[in-house]
Design a protein around this nucleic acid. Structure first.
Length: 290
DNA sequence: AGGTTGACCTGGACGC
DNA sequence: TGCGTCCAGGTCAACC
């Protein structure tokens, strides 16, 4: 599901509902293909931790936590160990990737536990933070280091036109594949790639390197415009995406090509085509996009 | 090297 | 109501 606008919507919900709260206990299910850290490690970092902030990096949710100081170690540790511990990072990160069907929900404890709930964090305020993911393509892990968590790729909403143009220089791959490549831009997925290419008037199969300066200028503007409009609409709920409070987005109402195969182009009336590019369903107007 | 292809999963929609 | 098939917002490892 979730591409940049959906993840941004979840992050904003979490900022409002869980920042400043403390995680009192964590329950983790037995479906371990979701975990990139061991359940033990995740529990060790999160148990008793205070939630200092929530951020988005591409499609990743980054939850900054202040782990609880481990008082039990005091009794036996040497001076040298104690010194080492004080230099350990004060902040750790809890990283969540929603995959295709992941949800991060803030609920009350009474809320019925959905099928495919894989993690529940009980908060001091009485709320619960739950991770639900039917297909289990999502990922959860904790990151502890001074450098903090980092990913490749540039944020599409921050990139300048010049840097944007450089990403595609010399690339023979279809422009759509390049837009989906998270090592170049982080956060654009299948829906917003198609919608951006439509608005820029560029065919998805065009080789990235063949885009003219003017194509790039229009595409850069289109990507930022589509993402901003989608964020303002709370993301796209095509089937099951919901925000942190279970609310659906409504940007799907404004899709111009995604999911509209056979329907008339809103600009010229030509039937929208659906093809496969880079293994993904790809929608475009054969007349408006060159 | 860089790009395209299956594998990973469950469930919903559709056709018979 | 019950198959069986296809498709899905993402990302890897494995293959040219």
């Amino acid at each position: 599901v979730p591409e940049l606008p959906e993840v941004e919507t979840v992050v904003r919900g979490l900022q409002k509902r869980v920042v400043g709260d403390t995680i009192e206990s964590v329950w983790i299910g037995d479906k371990s293909n979701l975990l990139k850290s061991s359940a033990l490690e995740i529990a060790r970092v999160l148990d008793g931790a205070r939630v200092a902030g929530v951020r988005r990096m591409g499609k990743h949710i980054v939850i900054d936590v202040h782990p609880k100081p481990r008082a039990s170690a005091k009794r036996t540790r040497s001076k040298r160990v104690a010194a080492a511990e004080t230099t350990a990072p004060r902040t750790a990160q809890w990283i969540v990737h929603l995959g295709m069907t992941g949800k991060m929900l803030v609920t009350t404890p009474e809320t019925e536990t959905e099928k495919h709930t894989h993690l529940i964090a009980q908060l001091a305020s009485g709320k619960e933070l739950r991770f639900v993911d039917p297909r289990r393509f999502g990922k959860i892990w904790v990151h502890e280091s001074d450098e903090g968590f980092a990913t490749a790729g540039t944020e599409p909403l921050h990139i300048t036109l010049d840097d944007f143009a450089k990403l595609f220089r010399g690339r023979k791959t279809p422009i759509k594949s390049a837009l989906l490549n998270q090592k170049l831009l982080r956060g654009v997925g299948n829906i917003y790639a198609d919608e951006s290419l439509f608005r820029a008037g560029i065919r998805p199969r065009r080789r990235a390197a063949t885009l003219t300066r003017d194509d790039l200028r229009r595409l850069h503007a289109a990507v930022q415009e589509v993402l901003k409009e989608a964020i303002a609409a709370g993301g796209s709920s095509v089937s099951d995406y919901v925000g942190a409070e279970g609310e659906r987005g409504f940007f799907q109402m404004q899709h111009r090509v995604y999911g509209r195969e056979g329907d008339p182009c809103l600009v010229c009336g030509t039937a929208i085509k659906k093809i496969v590019v880079a293994g993904r369903g790809t929608h475009y107007c054969p007349k408006c996009q060159k």
